[in-house]
Design a protein around this nucleic acid. Sequence first.
DNA 1: TGTACATCAGTGAACGCGCGTTCACTGATGTAC
DNA 2: TGTACATCAGTGAACGCGCGTTCACTGATGTAC
Lengths: 208, 208
Amino acid sequence: MNEISPKRGPETRQHLLEFAAQSVLAKGFAATSIDELIAAVGITKSGFFYHFKNKNELARALLQRYIDDEEALLDDLFRRGDELHEDPLHGFLVGLKMFAEMMQDLPNGHPGCLVASYCYQENLFDRDVRELNTEAVLQWRQRFRERFDLIAERYPPKIPVDFDALADMVSVLVDGGIIISKVLRDKEVLPKQIMLLRDYVRVIFLGT
Amino acid sequence: MNEISPKRGPETRQHLLEFAAQSVLAKGFAATSIDELIAAVGITKSGFFYHFKNKNELARALLQRYIDDEEALLDDLFRRGDELHEDPLHGFLVGLKMFAEMMQDLPNGHPGCLVASYCYQENLFDRDVRELNTEAVLQWRQRFRERFDLIAERYPPKIPVDFDALADMVSVLVDGGIIISKVLRDKEVLPKQIMLLRDYVRVIFLGT
DNA sequence: TGTACATCAGTGAACGCGCGTTCACTGATGTAC
DNA sequence: TGTACATCAGTGAACGCGCGTTCACTGATGTAC
């Protein structure tokens, strides 16, 4: 038995991270115990400390993974939108549409945003983890801000609008939409909010 | 000493709730210990259990107080908006403006939303607490939905819009705005998001 | 081809502290007669 | 006006469990010569 024994380490680490992410989103980081993670994965406690030197290291790895995954997902999505329309506005609108559809197709709704979860437990974490969180949000602001600048070159906005605030609005609606979806146990809320944002962006740059 | 000793009970309870709210918003409910609360308030642990029969009872009281306070605050705010304009649209727009200003005037920004905090630790709480959370969000949906219905009677929307989703958008932008404000440590984010919502509502019903 | 050593991915036992909860008790104030 | 009892707002000591972390050790695989 256990014929695939060589090099299981990275795999075990991934399982720990996956299970930890679920648990943190359901109960918070403080209530997520190392004991439950190792029980789920099937190693001993010392095995956990081989992979992570302490619990804060787990928090860091968890957040880094989440940020990287989200970035890859959304980059891919808006790139596909741009491939369908060379126009930056319509490419973005298609990207938002695809994003809304993707959120709608998740069987149990969005599992939750680690950035938001950490935000409401920030005192638990070292400064490096908190800075990671801040950096991630700032990156999204910059990314969308550049997009709106690009759009505005071709489509001067019909309504005066602060592009940094509009860029933040994407993160705001996603994080807020996830919360209201979760609290109401209604997975339609998040996609509907994204579509509302889409309508707003259209009316800003096209006037209807 | 201690000449004002009679009937201190309710006062102690309020202090416990105030301190608990701060701590829960900074670290989460699980990491908020009864020990730190009683240390802050100056009673013993058994004194705590005189006021709350267990920790879940504290969670319930905390959330109930938060919901009641927010409801009173926003009711008052939109009532004042309506007093300045008998028109339901302009009364609402004024209310949103005052809301944004109020958020801007908080010295350290909004301290956080307990509904959102509990949402990311829902597995810690009994069903009654979770239902309280759901009910609160549904009430806000209904409240704003009625407002939009009223507005639409006089101002048919220029853009087709789902009023339930638009009503949810208020909660979504507030909860999301608080998170992004907190993560960026920039208290301007939340009021700006509220003003963006205001512009959106205006363009929906007035066309600009 | 065989041996020596290094690295990987863990095991097992023990640690001390902090946690939520229970229990029997208390001293000051309020109320009934 | 004095006494008996009830209620309020706690105290103090003890409980057992679960937590994160440390330490010395191990057995399987990989690499150098």
